[in-house]
Design a binder for these strands. Structure first.
Length: 289
DNA sequence: CGATTCCCCTGATAGC
DNA sequence: TGCTATCAGGGGAATC
């Protein structure tokens, strides 16, 4: 599942590739993936001849700023992959040439943009949870959805004072608060587990009872873990790939996520997995208090 | 209003 | 072996 570090990796890579590309056509075999505008033909028509100015990230969304003040939003949810390359249509499927792109998830391409320079951008998504929307830039940036998103954890303005203010007022378990996009943007199941291990805090703790010292550890862990994950181009534990089909390296750094019954790398205890609100949380019961 | 459950999907895996 | 039930989970909607 792409979270902040994975989406950031994608956005940085995309900016090196797609700036200046002009949309030519759109193909899909699953119109439901496009949420806005509702009619596919209109979506197609509105994209045609728009040029990509730059790509940015907000929370886990990839935002393509286009000419004429349009913005294309792509949220990859669990299993979405954006891939750039030269493609060919064979036997009813879009297929890449040989190379790292020739992996199984490429058979799950459900949306494909072609550009005037004959290049293509594909969205593959095994489970079809991805969401694609085309907005007026101003309308998107002023939308309820964007306004309600929490701060970007790696933003300079996201100070400890600000963090403390938000988390001390949020009545929730710390793990859930970290994953709540309205509290703080971009963190999901993998990195909330990793951040809490780093901070030595039990995921079940209520945010309101955390001491200043403990909050400071969480705050620092957020920055440290996310920065390191970006440096390593993310985690490929759930099939993440960069836009050229390469894996991220953070999974080797992983301390708790999907390591149930393995040894804690700090104290040697068995990592436990519990259910929290329908999601699994992984932690060390000995050193996370 | 807040908290919980359901739902969208489909491949992998566990259980029989 | 092969079938079926369960699980994975981001996020929005529906429900309690």
């Amino acid at each position: 599942m792409p979270e902040l570090p994975e989406v950031e990796t994608i956005v940085r890579d995309l900016n090196k590739e797609v700036q200046g590309w002009t949309f030519f056509d759109v193909w899909t075999d699953f119109k439901k993936i496009i949420k806005k505008p509702k009619r596919f033909l209109q979506f197609k028509k509105e994209l045609k001849n728009k040029k990509i100015k730059k790509v940015r990230r907000r929370a886990k969304n990839i935002l393509f700023d286009l000419s004429e003040w349009k913005t294309l939003l792509i949220h990859q949810k669990m299993t979405g992959h954006l891939l750039v390359g030269q493609w060919q249509f064979k036997n009813g499927k879009w297929l890449p040439p040989a190379g790292p792109l020739s992996e199984k998830f490429n058979t799950f391409i459900h949306l494909l943009f072609t550009f005037k320079n004959t290049r293509m951008l594909a969205l593959s998504d095994l489970r079809k949870f991805s969401k694609v929307e085309l907005w007026d830039t101003k309308e998107l940036d002023g939308s309820e959805y964007v306004k309600k998103l929490g701060p970007e954890p790696l933003d300079k303005n996201f100070t400890f004072v600000k963090f403390k203010e938000i988390f001390q007022n949020k009545k929730d378990k710390i793990k859930q608060a970290l994953m709540d996009q309205k509290v703080i943007a971009g963190i999901g199941n993998i990195y909330s587990d990793e951040i809490l291990w780093e901070a030595k805090i039990n995921p079940l703790r209520q945010t309101t009872v955390l001491t200043d010292k403990e909050l400071k550890r969480v705050y620092l862990a957020i920055k440290r873990v996310l920065r390191k994950a970006i440096k390593l181009k993310g985690t490929s534990i759930s099939d993440f790939r960069t836009i050229s089909g390469e894996k991220g390296y953070y999974e080797k750094e992983r301390k708790v996520y999907r390591r149930e019954n393995e040894k804690c790398k700090r104290c040697g205890s068995k990592i436990r997995r519990i259910k929290m609100g329908g999601r699994s949380a992984h932690f060390c019961p000995t050193c996370q208090k």
